[in-house]
């Protein structure tokens, strides 16, 4: 194992062997889709780097004809998002299906004019996911496009963008995804643009979070992957308040990363002491 030397600004501890990771993820997608008895996958393209990487992996795993790529804009979506989604689709030979969500989202909120932008943003994320699930019927799985940074920070909408059947990139930090993106040939302008959830105009992830992904990734890697304590990170030169803020985000958002709680009253309860692998296979 590489000796651990974490310091602000030095991203080298996050380096991965992209070719190896790509191989692992392609075989993960193939195996797990086959075990579910499915033959297609569905994913939403946003024009960003995360969904572009998932599109690349899916196209490699199944061939483009078995990948349904959806672009689901709202009226405020940036024109560049459509352009970049199309570019990604073209890069991997995917037929891009565009389904606009403006009509249903606006119809819903027309009866509740006081809804704030967070509610509207969450509704948009869930609307998009419900369309992906609809398009998965009857023989496809929905792929997740949330990375490890977003998942750990809880930066996503529960049952919205966070929902999926399989997530090939959920164990890779944003910094690592950019590295992988270059390996799988994601166009440069998609890799280099500022990440945005695009839930309102002008939103950027880093602006909303209040810190940068590279700094957050190093702190998360220390806390999570290498089991460091906050104090260790501070003595390595990371800012104490930022370390605490990030750790607190991880704690507060843990509910988004687990299944719903079930009240135990019987002898044997789903999730508590009725424990079966999801990949439990039929013995035919």
């Amino acid at each position: 194992m590489r000796p651990l030397r974490l310091r602000p600004g030095d991203l080298s501890p996050l380096r991965i062997d992209e070719a190896l990771v790509r191989r692992m993820l392609v075989s993960f997608l193939r195996d797990e889709t086959a075990k579910a008895g499915m033959r297609r996958v569905v994913l939403g393209l946003s024009g960003g780097v995360d969904s572009a990487v998932v599109a690349a992996l899916a196209a490699e795993a199944f061939g483009p004809e078995r990948v349904t790529a959806l672009f689901t804009p709202y009226r405020t979506s940036a024109p560049a998002s459509r352009e970049h989604s199309q570019l990604v689709a073209d890069t991997y030979g995917l037929a891009l299906e565009e389904i606009e969500i403006t009509a249903q989202v606006d119809a819903f909120f027309s009866r509740m004019p006081n809804a704030d932008r967070v509610r509207i943003g969450n509704k948009m994320a869930r609307e998009r996911k419900s369309i992906e699930y609809d398009r998965s019927w009857p023989d496809a799985l929905v792929l997740g496009t949330s990375n490890k940074t977003e998942l750990l920070l809880g930066y996503g909408t529960q049952f919205g963008d966070l929902a999926s059947a399989l997530n090939p990139i959920g164990d890779l930090y944003k910094t690592q995804l950019r590295e992988l993106a270059l390996n799988v040939g994601v166009p440069g302008q998609v890799v280099s643009k500022p990440p945005s959830a695009e839930l309102w105009e002008g939103q950027t992830d880093e602006g909303e979070l209040g810190f940068g992904y590279s700094e957050a990734d190093l702190i998360l890697y220390g806390l999570v992957d290498r089991r460091m304590r906050a104090d260790d990170l501070v003595s390595s030169g990371f800012e104490g308040t930022l370390v605490s803020r990030i750790r607190e985000r991880v704690r507060k958002s843990h509910f988004k990363r687990v299944m719903p709680l079930i009240a135990k009253v019987s002898l044997r309860t789903i999730g508590h002491d009725f424990l079966y692998p999801r990949d439990w296979e039929a013995d035919l």
Binding site: M1, D17, V21, M24
Partner: peptide, 15 residues
Amino acid sequence: PGRGVAEGGDLGTAD
């Protein structure tokens, strides 16, 4: 199980 892709060299477990 294969794991440890960021810790240098090959897959950590394989090493």
